[in-house]
Design a protein around this nucleic acid. Structure first.
Lengths: 125, 125
DNA sequence: CAGCATCCATGCCGATACTG
DNA sequence: CAGTATCGGCATGGATGCTG
């Protein structure tokens, strides 16, 4: 099967859509070294609403990247951890991180130059 | 500098936010083997509005990933191409593609199982 | 504690009309 | 041809209140 990116069903596109998500990245990283409870994740990942955390975790569970274990205790306790597949995802982040750290200076500089140029061309205001 | 992903300024996050974008991927791929004009890109990438194409190209130009050359002719002609930096981006897509093609079956199967299970647990309509 | 349901603001994006 | 400007629908995601 030879997928091309113009197809919505292209695996690369599907995967990118998932890992592109802000909370997805943070959750995977947070779970990278071990199981965590819902509340722990919430605290560790600052600024995530309960809704988004739940929603993102459901998506990851659906994709087979995260497992969800519910303990029938009172108060309830739910533990999340990466599946084996989920752990392999970490490698992707590493290659992105590698590119990012190597090139971020250039990107930021380009942005600065671009913005400066734009500003100098604007007549006034 | 030791960045962590919880920081909005984390290079990995910045880069992910950019390459995650649907049109960004398609544009980079379209430019992968050579310079293209605005209209060519528009036609080659089906379904992109003129607004989004312009907007995405501007972002890529600002980041130093794409160069924009305007010819002062009538009718106007504008050519886009990847910068050297932009071309290195392609490697990232390759590592994502590699992961995606290797694991997409598992992900789709997990989704199927998850949905089936959810459906069987739903009492009725 | 973990999560669902609801409401609502914001912002993205497509469609359309106009310009150098 | 390759844009810019504007309007509006619609999805995304935050805040709040309620439940097993």
């Amino acid at each position: 099967m030879n997928w091309d990116v113009y197809n919505e069903k292209c695996p690369t596109r599907i995967v990118l859509d998932r890992i592109a998500d802000k909370w997805t990245v943070l959750i995977v990283v947070a779970l990278e070294n071990g199981t965590k409870r819902f509340g722990e994740l919430r605290r560790e990942i600052g600024g995530v609403s309960q809704k988004m955390l739940t929603q993102t975790l459901r998506g990851l569970e659906r994709d087979g990247l995260v497992t969800r274990v519910v303990y029938a205790s009172v108060p309830p306790k739910v533990e999340y951890s990466l599946t084996e597949l989920g752990r392999t995802l970490v490698h992707i982040f590493e290659s992105v991180r590698e590119w990012a750290e190597r090139n971020i200076e250039d990107v930021l500089k380009a942005q600065g130059d671009y913005d400066t140029k734009a500003a100098s061309e604007a007549p006034d205001e």
